[in-house]
């Protein structure tokens, strides 16, 4: 099998071409923070947490959407990257209304874990405190836009795995929102199959089952990859 040589953090690796930097790093136990990445669905480079430095490239590139090239010299652990990761995490928390202590996902939230990883002890940016609706119109699930970080994992899983495309995105910038159908209440959606995959894909407490309380949330994001693997085997 053809391999190419790359360098990550001054160490040489022989890897198969066509893989993303993130895949190579994960295979070799090199830690890269991610939030919008979910195995089994397409990467979009939305969260900007997996940025890496590549020698000869002025800007930082997202590891999940950049493929390895021969003789690439990559750095994942510079002070600049750590600074950016911290800024990005702070902005996640400042943009909407995240209150871990009363969140249904407390203790089981990827955003909360990210905060611990980057050593988040305070946030330097003013909180926006947007007025966000809680969409409780679905009979089983709740969509709380206060806790959404716009990773769009729900949008992609609904489209690529379930094939329903109930979820999509409207507006731009800080006004961006995940919407159901053409911005109708979730419970009135004509495309939603109530499969619950979006719930498992959601990294925070934005989508959760109605009848549970804090401590009972049991999301299984890994089932998305499993589903895709099983489907591939059947084909």
């Amino acid at each position: 099998m053809t391999t190419i040589t790359i360098h990550i953090n001054e160490k040489e690796y022989q890897v198969a071409p066509g893989k993303t930097i993130l895949e190579v790093c994960r295979e070799n136990d090199i830690e890269i923070l991610t939030m919008c990445h979910l195995k089994g669905i397409m990467d979009v480079g939305a969260c900007r947490l997996c940025l890496v430095e590549i020698e000869g490239v002025n800007r930082l590139l997202s590891a999940c959407t950049t493929k390895v090239g021969a003789n690439m010299i990559i750095r994942t652990d510079t002070e600049r990257i750590k600074r950016y990761q911290r800024i990005t995490t702070e902005l996640f928390f400042a943009e909407r209304n995240h209150v871990c202590s009363v969140c249904v996902a407390n203790g089981k939230c990827e955003l909360q874990q990210l905060g611990y990883k980057v050593g988040l002890d305070h946030i330097r940016y003013p909180f926006l405190y947007p007025q966000c609706e809680v969409d409780s119109s679905h009979p089983w699930y709740v969509m709380d836009h206060n806790r959404c970080i716009m990773c769009t994992r729900c949008v992609r899983v609904c489209n690529e795995v379930e094939g329903a495309h109930n979820w999509d995105v409207m507006n731009r910038g800080y006004q961006v929102r995940v919407i159901s159908d053409f911005n109708t209440p979730w419970g009135e959606s004509i495309t939603c199959t109530s499969c619950g995959k979006c719930l498992h894909a959601c990294p925070t407490g934005a989508i959760w089952p109605k009848a549970i309380v804090q401590g009972q949330l049991n999301k299984k994001p890994e089932i998305i990859e499993e589903l895709m693997e099983k489907r591939a085997m059947k084909l």
């Binding site: 009363v102 409780s136 309380v213 804090q214």
Partner: peptide
């Protein structure tokens, strides 16, 4: 107001 009733056992102890 506007929160789910099932969140109250978590919010009100605060």
């Amino acid at each position: 107001e506007g929160r789910m009733y099932t969140e109250m056992p978590t919010i009100t102890p605060r």
